[in-house]
Design a protein around this nucleic acid. Structure first.
Lengths: 191, 191
DNA sequence: GTCTATATAATGATAGAC
DNA sequence: GTCTATCATTATATAGAC
């Protein structure tokens, strides 16, 4: 197996496990089992657990960045782009119910651990915030674009947390519909 | 030191530490240091770490129950009672910024750990949900009382998560004001 | 690049003296 | 009721053979 290959596999496996079990609770043994390598082999690719976390957060940041770019290229209409954001909750329906929002839960955990990487994790929120703000601005909501961006983040975080807590699929579907309606009202309002 | 006294102290110290550091990350050594007892003495009062968690959740449930009772006795007007709920975010301002919402963060963590006590933790959400529903119902919003209760929970969870992530006091204050305005509109709407 | 074997520290938990 | 001493287990991390 090539070096980059194994390294990539470790990052991807850690990404999933950190999401499902949390960072602190996930051990090298867990990741090693998922990738099918020995624990000792780890330290050829990463010097510490924190370095794996760094790599995972970098991956998430770049994936998020790519996703937002794609949404921007897929259509000229900002309302359509924003619809993509809302539909993350729908697309990742089952994962949200079981594990909540990957961005929110990781950031919250790292903050409680007083982990230095919490700032890096937070940047994913900032990525979304800036992108959302730009879409609202393009929609014509110049002056309150940041407020609207934060409203959408608040909603998605709250919905994910409660859908997870209550393990309620119907609730999740209903809230996504209400969010879509909110966005619709907001765009017709500007015409 | 009497048995109940030390036992109470352990529960209270664990309550704080679980909130600040998370359940999994908090060790007996941490709690022992806070209470100023030896690690061995623990097992006279609790058979396991899970039993301490159980006691902490029970305490939180009973405290929440008491608080809601008090709010109900303090005024006959449901809008005033609901205002108390919104103002938790204001009253616990600094804690929210540093550690997020105690109910949401514990429930989320226990779900990720697949911990059997997650259901008990979830009950605190249910306590709020039922209480909020009753207030909205008394306000005249009979048919959509549960939806409104969940809207308020969504907002408070989302606001707490993002205020924590961005460590933004101004954001928190502003969102509390907006929630109060939302509640105000909702109550004048019924007159 | 990957393995086995091992060092080291911390964890939850127990036993028994006082 | 509280302590010290200790056990078993797990964790991150290292050393060195292949």
């Amino acid at each position: 197996m090539t070096a980059t290959n194994t390294r990539e596999q470790i990052i991807v496996a850690a990404d999933v496990l950190f999401y499902q079990q949390g960072f602190d609770h996930t051990s090298f043994a867990n990741i090693a089992e998922a990738v099918n390598i020995s624990r000792g082999n780890f330290y050829y690719h990463f010097k510490s657990k924190d370095q794996i976390l760094s790599a995972v957060i970098s991956l998430r940041r770049s994936n998020t960045h790519l996703m937002l770019k794609e949404w921007e290229l897929s259509t000229e209409r900002p309302e359509r782009r924003l619809l993509n954001f809302i539909q993350i909750l729908q697309v990742n329906h089952d994962k949200i119910l079981r594990y909540g929002c990957p961005v929110g839960t990781l950031t919250t955990e790292l903050l409680k651990l007083s982990h230095p990487a919490s700032n890096e994790a937070k940047m994913i929120f900032t990525l979304f915030r800036t992108w959302l703000r730009r879409q609202f601005s393009e929609m014509g909501h110049k002056s309150d674009s940041d407020n609207l961006a934060m409203q959408l983040l608040i909603q998605s975080q709250g919905i994910a947390t409660l859908a997870n807590a209550f393990n309620d699929a119907e609730f999740l579907n209903k809230q996504v519909s209400q969010l879509q309606q909110w966005l619709d009202d907001l765009s017709t309002e500007m015409k």
